[in-house]
C-alpha cells in the first residue's frame, strides 16, 4: 500500500512583522523591506499531516510551491522536515496571479508530476489570507476537497490493500461537520489538526541531497491565458492603510482615583453599573 501525496506551500513575509508594513506614499505600493520570509505557518501542519499518513501507510511526499526563485529555500526547509522531493514553479509569467490563476498553475504543476492521491495545503496564507486556493485547486484537479480540516482518519480497505476513502472533520463556527471523502482529494488543514515536528540536524543534511525540480512556464502544460495577471479575473486597485487612531485620553492618579474616573466614563457611555447584582459576579 502506498500513497502519492503532495503538499502545497507558500513562502510569506513573517506575520510577526506585519505592523511594520507601510505604503509608499508616492508610488502607492506596499513596502515590506527588511521583513524576513518564512514558510506560511499552517503549511507546516499540512506537511505534518502528509508525513503522518506516509508513516502510517507508506508512500511519497512531494512539496510544491509557486514562488520567486528564492522559494527554493522554503522547499529545502520542507525537505529537511521530512518531505521526499520538491518542485518549484517559478517564472515571471506566473507573477501577478490571483487565487484562480495561482490554483491553475499549481494544478498544472501537480499534473506534470503525476497522479496524486492526496494533496494537502494550509487553510490560508498569513499574508493575503484569502483561503481560496485550496478549493479552487481541487476544481482544476477535478478532485474532492475539504477545507479547514481539524481531524483525519484513513479508511483502509484491507481486501484491496489500499486507501480509497477517509473520514475528516471540517471545523465550522462553534463546532464541526464530519465527512467521508473519496480519494483523490485535496485537504486544506487547520492549525488544530496536529503539531508540526521539529527539523533534525540529520534532516537538514539529508535535505541537501533530495531532488528539487524547477519548472518554468515552458516546462508545464499551461494555457497562457489562464496564468499570471492575464489569467486573473480579479484586478487590484488602490491600496491604503485603515485609520485606527483615537484621541487617547490618559487617566492619571493612584489606582483608586483611576477606577473612579473609569466608572464615570462607563456611566457616560450608557453602562448601568448599579443594576448588576453582586451575586452575578461572585466566584
Amino acid at each position: 500500500m502506498s500513497l502519492k501525496i503532495a503538499v502545497c506551500i507558500k513562502p510569506v513575509p513573517d506575520p510577526d512583522y506585519y505592523d511594520q508594513i507601510t505604503i509608499d506614499p508616492v508610488r502607492k505600493t506596499i513596502t515590506r523591506a527588511g521583513i524576513p520570509t518564512i514558510i506560511n505557518p499552517v503549511d507546516k501542519n499540512a506537511l505534518e499531516a502528509a508525513l503522518q499518513i506516509k508513516e502510517q501507510v507508506g508512500g511519497t511526499v512531494t512539496v510544491i510551491t509557486m514562488a520567486p526563485p528564492n522559494g527554493e529555500e522554503s522547499l529545502r526547509e520542507m525537505l529537511a522536515m521530512g518531505a521526499d522531493e520538491a518542485c518549484l514553479l517559478t517564472d515571471r509569467a506566473f507573477g501577478g496571479a490571483d487565487t484562480l490563476a495561482t490554483s491553475y498553475t499549481l494544478a498544472q504543476g501537480l499534473k506534470k508530476l503525476g497522479n496524486f492521491d492526496l494533496v494537502f495545503t494550509g487553510t490560508e496564507s498569513a499574508d493575503g489570507a484569502t483561503s481560496q486556493v485550496p478549493s479552487q485547486l481541487a476544481e482544476w484537479l477535478g478532485m474532492a476537497h475539504l477545507w479547514n480540516v481539524s481531524e483525519i482518519k484513513l479508511k483502509e480497505d484491507q481486501a484491496e490493500d489500499k486507501v480509497q476513502e477517509l473520514q475528516a472533520k471540517m471545523k465550522i463556527e462553534n463546532g464541526y461537520i464530519e465527512y467521508e471523502v473519496k480519494l483523490p482529494a485535496v485537504l486544506a488543514v487547520s492549525r488544530d489538526l496536529n503539531t508540526p515536528r521539529f527539523t533534525s540536524i540529520m534532516g537538514v543534511m539529508k535535505a541537501k541531497k533530495k531532488p528539487l525540480t524547477v519548472f518554468t512556464v515552458n516546462d508545464v502544460d499551461v494555457d497562457r491565458t489562464l496564468i499570471g495577471l492575464d489569467g486573473s479575473p480579479t484586478k487590484a486597485g488602490a491600496v491604503f492603510t485603515p485609520s485606527l487612531s483615537r484621541k487617547g485620553e490618559r487617566l492619571t492618579g493612584d489606582l483608586d482615583e483611576v477606577v473612579e474616573q473609569l466608572l464615570q466614563k462607563l456611566r457616560a457611555a450608557g453602562i448601568n453599573l448599579e443594576i448588576k447584582s453582586s451575586s452575578q459576579g461572585g466566584r
Binding site: 489570507a129 486556493v133 478549493s135 479552487q136 471540517m170 463556527e173 486573473s232 479575473p233
Partner: peptide
C-alpha cells in the same frame, strides 16, 4: 466569510471561472 462561505465561494468561482474577493 464563514467556514462554509470560505469554502463554497471560491469553489463556485473556480467552477464559473470568475473572480472572488475574499473576507
Amino acid at each position: 466569510a464563514t467556514a462554509i462561505g470560505q469554502d463554497l465561494a471560491p469553489m463556485l468561482g473556480g467552477i464559473l471561472k470568475t473572480g472572488v474577493a475574499a473576507h
